[in-house]
Amino acid sequence: MSELVVEKISKLYQGEPILSEVSFSVKDGEFVALLGPSGSGKSTLFHLIGGISKPEQGAFYLDGINITGQRGAISYTPQSPSLFPWRTIIDNVVLGLEIHAKPDYDRARTMLQKAGLSGYEEAYPHQLSGGMQQRVAFVRALLSPQDFICLDEPFSALDEFTRLEMQKWLLTIWEENRQSVLFVTHNIEEALFLSDRVIVLSSKPAQIKKEFVVPFERPRREELLLSEEFLKWKKAIYQELQGNHDERHH
């Protein structure tokens, strides 16, 4: 079980507020997307959850325990794959585990197989494509001992086709484990396609603008992306985001 509660988080950066009273929660087994324009402090929020910096105000609770400022409480996949170039793929995916316990290579091998990466266990990261590297990074997050997974725009560096492949892949892998996921993105389609709930952030300072509960059934298929209803939702969220811009100009 793992449930994250974000309570009234505020953060200043060089005197400017970048997060202002941000509150939301991710329930056990829920996939939540945090959607906001670039530079809206989404990554900062992750740094705060990860304990790299401390918020001026507010707290994080994981399963009821205060984890504010505590490192290593969540499992994390950054924007770039951040694989260790001198480690083989198998050694890379066990790293998260290795930091806290003894690595389980058999489980890692099974996971890599499920992720469509069998045969690459002994390869080095530079021999893999960008999409595959990102898969490895995600498998590393899944294998980490923490149950709660934070994904920081993991597909933003990929091209459109690879990105869709990766999204479908992520969904199939996730369906098997149903771990709680907080997914940060600036792509509306991605947020809608993947998540159970989309939280829209405004920028400067980031505040929760609106929350959308995504009604689409799981497992989700690619066809969904072109359905009438999907486009309707996309439009609604787009207008919500546009609203941000108008407010800023006025």
Partner: peptide, 8 residues
């Protein structure tokens, strides 16, 4: 950054 986030 990854190592810090992972709690190393």
């Amino acid at each position: 950054h990854y190592m810090h986030m992972a709690g190393a």
